[in-house]
Simulated scan of single mutants.
Amino acid sequence: MSSLKTLTVYYDLFGPDAMLTCTIKIDAVNLVTFSITSYLTVQFVLVNLDSLVDAHVDFVSFDPFLQQIAGPCTINLLRGFGNMKTLRLSNDTVECLSYAKTTLHLLPMFNNLTYLDVDLGATESTHEALMDILQKMPKLETLYIPTGFHPDVCMNGKGWILNSVPCCFKSCLKLFCISDFDGGVAEMELLKFVLKNATVLGEIQLFYTDAHLIVKLEVWLNLLASETTENLNSHSA
């Protein structure tokens, strides 16, 4: 359909079960915006989406078994988005990708992508999957986490350091933003990782509701600055 520029796909979670295993082909050469909310097991075949600029993917599932099955479906869908500039991923979508960790290398390089909006949930596996996904985004300029981290997540930083630093951190990431920031362990560890590795970062935006958090942040940033200075002095010695 050559005239179609915006497409929204929504599958009702209470719809007929026959839709769960169907295959949907989308051929839209001038499509600019694509948004999808669907069950994870629906197969999408994307053709001629070279004009796509903005994509939003929300693969909904409350069943861990379905999430494991749906990894290939998610990767197959994202492979059709190679030219987009903006991508928004729900937590369920990232969690699905975390189940397909051994095949994440099948994702294409998103060489035109400059903006990523990614919702992270209550499992550390989604955070590890995020680092793998970022490896496929060499020109990313903005990383936005809209809902902060789930308060039950307690991370010691291993999820951020086990993977190699994404190349976008070293060359082009300019803006890092977290909404609903509460200063939890996982958020602080990610913030520390970004400050340490994003060498061209120009701005960090943290949105929070607790007025006391600013004091905690100031103390933490001062400690981090002292730690960085000590490390530099030890290397120079």
Rank of each mutant, 00 (worst) to 15 (best):
V94R: 01
D119G: 03
Q205C: 13
V47L: 11
V153I: 11
A70F: 01
P166W: 03
S35P: 01
E141G: 05
L66T: 01
Y10F: 15
A18S: 13
V57N: 08
H150C: 06
K85R: 13
D12E: 05
I75Q: 00
T86L: 07
K25H: 09
Y208T: 11
D117N: 09
V57H: 10
M19F: 15
N156W: 10
F149K: 08
T147V: 05
F169K: 02
E218D: 14
K158T: 14
L190H: 03
A122F: 07
L116N: 02
C96I: 15
L20F: 06
F207D: 10
Q68P: 06
V53L: 08
L46K: 02
I24R: 13
M1G: 13
L140I: 04
L97A: 04
D132M: 03
Q43N: 13
Q135H: 12
L104T: 10
L173F: 05
Q43K: 13
T93G: 03
N222C: 13
T142C: 13
T93D: 06
G157R: 03
S236N: 10
I24N: 10
S125W: 05
L40F: 12
T114F: 08
V29L: 07
Y115W: 07
I69F: 13
L162T: 12
N91R: 15
A18G: 10
L191E: 04
L173Q: 03
I75T: 10
Y208C: 05
D12H: 04
A18L: 12
E230F: 07
A225C: 14
N197D: 07
P151F: 07
Q205Y: 12
T142S: 11
S226T: 10
D119N: 06
Y39A: 07
E141R: 06
E124L: 06
I133V: 15
I24D: 05
I75M: 02
A186E: 06
Q68T: 09
T6C: 11
N83R: 12
S171A: 10
D180M: 10
V94Y: 00
H150I: 03
L40S: 09
H56C: 07
C73G: 02
E230H: 08
P64R: 01
T21C: 14
I145R: 00
K25S: 15
T23C: 08
N48S: 12
T103Q: 09
V153E: 02
V215Q: 07
F65R: 02
F149M: 08
A129K: 01
L104I: 14
A129Q: 03
M19V: 13
L221H: 09
S3N: 15
N233E: 08
E227I: 05
C154R: 14
F193V: 15
N163C: 11
A129Y: 01
L49G: 05
D117T: 02
A122K: 13
D117R: 05
L134T: 02
T37W: 12
F207I: 14
L224K: 02
F81W: 04
T8E: 14
N30V: 00
R79A: 02
P151V: 05
V200M: 08
I161N: 06
L7D: 03
V194T: 08
H127E: 09
L104V: 10
F34I: 06
E227F: 04
D92K: 00
K25P: 08
L175Q: 02
S236M: 04
H150K: 12
F34H: 00
N222I: 11
M155G: 10
R88M: 14
K5G: 01
K136E: 00
D182G: 15
G15M: 04
H105A: 05
